[in-house]
Computed example of a mutant assay.
Amino acid sequence: MTDSIENRIAEQRAHLESTLDEIENKLNVPKQFNRYADKAKSSYDENPVPWIVGATAVAISIVGIVAWAIFSDDE
């Protein structure tokens, strides 16, 4: 009887430890940032075209906003 209780306690402790490790990993901002940075880098390495198109679109948008702010009629 006590062996089964001790086994259940050990299982519950292992489960709790695993759950706490998962929570720690999800809340660890530097680790998550590095994970997403590695994922983005591998995505760029596989196919850089969408990244280049996206960067170009952002640059054009910024230039357009700056031009609109400079040349807009403020009257």
Rank of each mutant, 00 (worst) to 15 (best):
W68P: 06
K39E: 09
S72R: 15
I5Q: 12
M1S: 04
V58A: 12
L20N: 07
I70R: 02
F71W: 13
I65P: 08
I9A: 15
R8L: 14
R8P: 02
K39F: 09
E17A: 14
P50S: 07
Y36N: 03
S43W: 08
L16S: 09
G64S: 07
V53M: 05
L16F: 06
N34L: 03
D45H: 01
G54H: 03
I70E: 10
A59R: 06
W51M: 07
V63R: 00
A10W: 08
I5P: 00
A10T: 10
D74V: 03
A55D: 04
A57E: 09
E22Q: 06
A37G: 00
D21K: 13
N25Q: 08
A67L: 00
S42Y: 04
N28R: 02
Y36R: 03
W51N: 03
L16Y: 12
F71A: 11
Q12W: 15
V63W: 00
Q32Y: 01
N28K: 10
R35Q: 05
Q12E: 14
P48M: 02
D3W: 08
V63A: 11
E22H: 07
A40D: 09
S61N: 05
Q32P: 00
P30G: 03
I23E: 08
T56F: 05
G54K: 05
K31T: 12
N28Q: 13
V66A: 02
A57I: 13
G64E: 00
V49Q: 12
I60V: 15
V53N: 06
N47Q: 13
Y44F: 11
G54R: 02
F33V: 15
E75I: 07
K31H: 05
E11W: 02
K26M: 09
P48K: 08
S18N: 15
A57T: 04
A40L: 13
M1V: 05
I5R: 06
F71V: 06
I23M: 07
E22V: 02
L27W: 06
N7F: 03
I70M: 00
D3S: 11
E17W: 09
I5H: 03
V66Y: 06
R35I: 14
W68M: 13
D45M: 04
Y44Q: 04
T56R: 06
I5W: 02
A67K: 14
E24Y: 01
A10D: 15
K31E: 07
A10V: 01
V63P: 01
D21I: 07
E75K: 15
A55I: 12
L27G: 03
D73I: 12
I52A: 04
E46D: 05
H15N: 12
D21L: 03
I5L: 14
I5Y: 15
A37H: 00
V49D: 09
E17H: 06
V63Y: 02
A59M: 12
S72V: 12
N47H: 04
H15E: 15
W68R: 11
G54N: 01
E6M: 14
R35G: 08
A40P: 01
R8C: 05
A55L: 01
N47Y: 07
V63C: 01
D38F: 00
S18W: 10
E75M: 13
I5F: 12
L20M: 13
I60Q: 06
N47V: 01
Y44S: 03
A40C: 10
E22T: 10
P30Q: 02
I9F: 15
D45F: 00
Y44H: 08
V53H: 02
A55G: 07
I60H: 09
